[in-house]
């Protein structure tokens, strides 16, 4: 057997609360979230940065958690799908996906919703091209994306009518 690295302790903020876990330094943040922190809403579709099912926000930036080593999570602020709804009320993007058919099988949905929420944080009024570009790292095999675009547009509209 090759020699074993020691596990390290990592502290970070997850969905607004302090979190701390032990992991091998190069363990995938994806696995840590799912297995150590029991946040199974983040999904694995490919493990190689292609599908976006594992998308989360790290210090406000969208990242693929399958490509982030546990060690680099140290001291960061992380948001996963579990941190999107506040109390019982859904985030505007979640609500829009529910009403407009943005989720079918649902496996791409957590990552897609985070990517959409992240997009709206950067471009509150995205045009069609920005929506398409912003979601191009999140593959969906079920919807053909149309209902996802509609959902994002609906979320924007909702935010507008509120403002």
């Amino acid at each position: 057997m090759p020699e074993r690295a020691r596990k390290i302790r990592v502290s970070c903020v997850v969905n607004g609360g302090a979190a701390s876990f032990e992991a091998y330094p190069m363990a995938r943040l994806l696995d840590v979230l799912r297995e150590e922190l029991k946040l199974t809403g983040t999904k694995e579709g490919c493990g190689e940065g292609e599908c976006g099912a594992c998308s989360i926000e790290m210090d406000g930036a969208l990242v693929n958690s399958c490509l982030v080593p546990a060690l680099q999570a140290q001291g960061t602020k992380i948001r996963t799908i579990e941190g999107l709804a506040i109390g019982g009320s859904l985030h505007a993007v979640q609500q829009a996906f529910l009403t407009h058919g943005g989720a079918q099988c649902g496996i791409c949905t957590p990552g897609m919703i985070l990517a959409a929420a992240n997009l709206l944080a950067r471009y509150p009024q995205p045009d069609d091209a920005q929506i398409r570009e912003g979601l191009s790292g999140n593959l969906c095999r079920c919807t053909g994306y149309m209902k996802i675009f509609e959902s994002v547009v609906a979320a924007v509209r909702r935010a507008e009518t509120r403002a």
Binding site: T40, L84, A85, F97, L98, G106, T109
Partner: peptide, 14 residues
């Protein structure tokens, strides 16, 4: 709306 939609958009679908 989809029956199991809420679970899916919140990451609670297992």
């Amino acid at each position: 709306p989809r029956k199991e939609g809420r679970k899916k958009v919140t990451g609670r679908a297992r």
